[in-house]
C-alpha cells in the first residue's frame, strides 16, 4: 500500500494509522497484549476493529484470536496475567482453565475487581480454517504509539456480513465499508469471499 492521507487515517507502508487519541479501552488491550506477546501471537478481531476506527457504540469485550499453546507455556502466561492485575472468569488454576482451551473454547480476562471490559481469548489452530486464515494475514494498525494486528479490513467486513450477520455486525461492517472506502480493494473481497463462504459448506 502506498501513502494516502485523509483526515481521520492514513496508510503508511503496510500500516493503517488512525488519527485519534488513545482511550481507556486501548490501554486495557495494550496491557493485555504486552503480556500475551511474551508467550504467543495474536489477532484482534470483530467489534474492536470497528470501534478502534470510529464506530461509536458501546462494547463489553475485545475478541483476541491466539494459537493454542502447550500447557506449560499457558501456565506461565496465566501466572503472568495475574501478576499484571488480570483475573480469568473461568478460574484461578491454570490447569483447570487450560481444559477450556484444549477443547478450543474461549476464556475471558478482565482487570482485577472488574468485569467489563474483558478480553475474549479465543484459541485457534489450523482446524479452525477461517480464523486461522485471518490470523495468518494480519493488517497492522496504529493509534499514537500503540500498534496492533487486525484482519484485513475486507475480510473483517465479509466475516461480519456473511458469517455473523446480526444487525450490530451489519452496522459494524457498513461503518468499515464507509470509513475505509478509499482503500478497499474489490479483488480482495473476491478472494476472501470464497474463503468465508467455504465455512458455510
Amino acid at each position: 500500500m502506498g501513502e494516502r492521507l485523509t483526515k481521520a487515517y492514513k496508510v503508511i507502508g503496510d500500516t493503517i494509522v488512525i488519527n485519534r487519541e488513545l482511550t481507556e479501552l486501548d490501554y486495557f488491550l495494550r496491557d493485555f497484549l504486552k503480556v500475551l506477546i511474551k508467550y504467543s501471537d495474536y489477532l484482534v478481531v470483530s467489534g474492536f476493529v470497528s470501534i478502534s476506527t470510529g464506530r461509536t457504540r458501546g462494547t463489553e469485550d475485545i475478541d483476541v484470536l491466539s494459537p493454542l499453546i502447550n500447557k506449560e507455556l499457558f501456565s506461565k502466561f496465566f501466572n503472568d496475567m495475574e501478576k499484571n492485575n488480570f483475573w480469568c472468569y473461568q478460574g484461578d488454576s491454570s490447569d483447570n482453565v487450560y481444559s477450556y482451551l484444549e477443547e478450543l473454547n474461549s476464556i475471558r480476562f478482565a482487570k482485577k475487581d472488574q468485569i467489563f471490559p474483558n478480553i475474549e481469548f479465543i484459541p485457534i489452530n489450523e482446524k479452525r480454517k477461517v480464523k486461522f486464515f485471518e490470523f495468518s494475514h494480519p493488517q497492522k494498525i496504529k493509534v499514537k504509539n500503540f500498534e496492533f494486528k487486525i484482519p484485513p479490513i475486507e475480510f473483517e467486513i465479509l466475516y461480519k456480513e456473511i458469517l455473523l450477520g446480526s444487525e450490530k455486525d451489519k452496522q459494524d461492517a457498513m461503518h468499515l465499508r464507509t470509513f475505509f472506502s478509499e482503500i478497499l480493494k474489490k479483488e480482495r473481497f473476491k478472494e476472501f469471499e470464497l474463503i468465508i463462504k467455504g465455512e458455510l459448506k
Binding site: 488519527n19 485519534r20 482511550t23 461509536t56 461503518h175
Partner: peptide
C-alpha cells in the same frame, strides 16, 4: 457518521468520552 468521522477526526473525542 462514518463519512463525517472520516472528514472530522475531532469526532473521535466524543467517541472517547462515550467509551470511557
Amino acid at each position: 457518521y462514518a463519512k463525517e468521522m472520516n472528514k472530522h477526526p475531532e469526532f473521535f473525542n466524543s467517541q472517547k468520552k462515550l467509551i470511557e
